[in-house]
Nucleic acid binder design. Structure first.
Length: 297
DNA sequence: AGAAGGCCCTGACCGC
DNA sequence: TGCGGTCAGGGCCTTC
């Protein structure tokens, strides 16, 4: 599921269950996901209280009172589900009843909530591209996963002025530049394709072509920045995209996939009324790019 | 230094 | 129905 809007949607689903809860018990079904779990992972978290659940790029960050930050990445196929006994004990209308472990359940957080109720948060990840790590708060900025991350594509930080120095002189295709987490953090394949379509920009164009020789952003770069922010904001409002049968932590489905203009639409007509072009699929740095060669220049 | 490609892993889907 | 090939939302590591 996991580009920024999906991770943000997961965060919003988990936040009311995680925040304020004590991790009564933490069960690992295996010693590793993509990477081994940190040393004494369960021991360092059990008995501690989660004070907040935030997000940076595609990472979920659980802050632990007097403890480390728990960083969680969903990889390609990671998902969380919330289990609770009894209706009304946990917010969210699609909370699962307690059940037997399912295939590919790897981590189970047993939580004691402030109101005295119990709940569990289960991490399931068939492909095991996800991972979890523990970071001491003072080390966060220097941590390899976070120190090189670029601009968050939410809020006003993403602008033509901010992108110009990052794109200046770069011959890499726009598609690759937008996927580079060191420049903009949180975009993935789907939303890059969608934002480029909205901005009428070709994914093959050199990133540096949107920067003036004096280093100033061209108008088109500013338009692109606007469209990236809007695409991400629209997707978050829609609860992210649900491909195949992925669901939010609360069990609800995202529905931004119904708003795709190019992603997965190879061979179909361009959605821009006046265009008349056809969506094509090419491969860039090993991944599919969907775009309309007629109106994206 | 920066960029391209391989690779980690499972599951779904397609064509034969 | 079964089998092999292909592809998938990410990002680290190696190679060039």
């Amino acid at each position: 599921m996991p580009e920024l809007p999906e991770v943000e949607t997961v965060r919003r689903g988990l936040q009311p269950v995680f925040e304020g809860a004590r991790i009564a018990r933490l069960h690992l079904a295996r010693p590793d996901l993509r990477f081994p779990f940190p040393e004494r992972f369960s021991e360092r978290l059990e008995g501690r209280v989660v004070t907040s659940l935030s997000r940076r790029a595609k990472y979920l960050l659980a802050e632990i009172a007097d403890g480390p930050i728990l960083a969680m990445h969903l990889g390609m196929s990671g998902s969380f589900r919330i289990e609770a006994n009894g209706a009304g004990t946990v917010p969210g209308s699609f909370v699962h009843p307690r059940s037997e472990a399912r295939l590919h359940d790897h981590v189970r957080f047993e939580l004691a909530r402030p109101d005295g109720s119990a709940a569990a948060i289960v991490f399931n990840d068939p492909r095991r591209f996800g991972y979890m790590s523990l970071i001491e708060p003072g080390d966060f900025g220097a941590h390899p996963h976070f120190r090189d991350l670029g601009i968050e594509p939410t809020g006003n930080g993403l602008s033509g002025e901010a992108l110009a120095p990052l794109f200046a002189g770069k011959a890499v295709p726009l598609k690759a530049a937008l996927l580079d987490q060191r420049l903009i953090a949180g975009l993935g394949n789907i939303y890059v394709c969608e934002a480029l379509w909205r901005a009428k920009l070709s994914p093959r164009r050199a990133a540096g072509s949107l920067v003036r020789r004096n280093g100033a952003p061209t108008p088109r770069l500013s338009v692109l920045a606007d469209h990236i922010r809007e695409t991400i904001a629209d997707a978050i409002l829609a609860g992210g995209s649900t491909l195949r049968d992925h669901r939010q932590a609360t069990g609800e489905l995202g529905y931004f996939q119904h708003s795709f203009n190019v992603y997965g639409r190879e061979g179909q007509p361009c959605r821009r009324a006046e265009c008349g072009g056809t969506v094509s699929r090419i491969v860039q740095s090993g991944r599919s790019t969907f775009f309309c060669a007629s109106c994206q220049r």
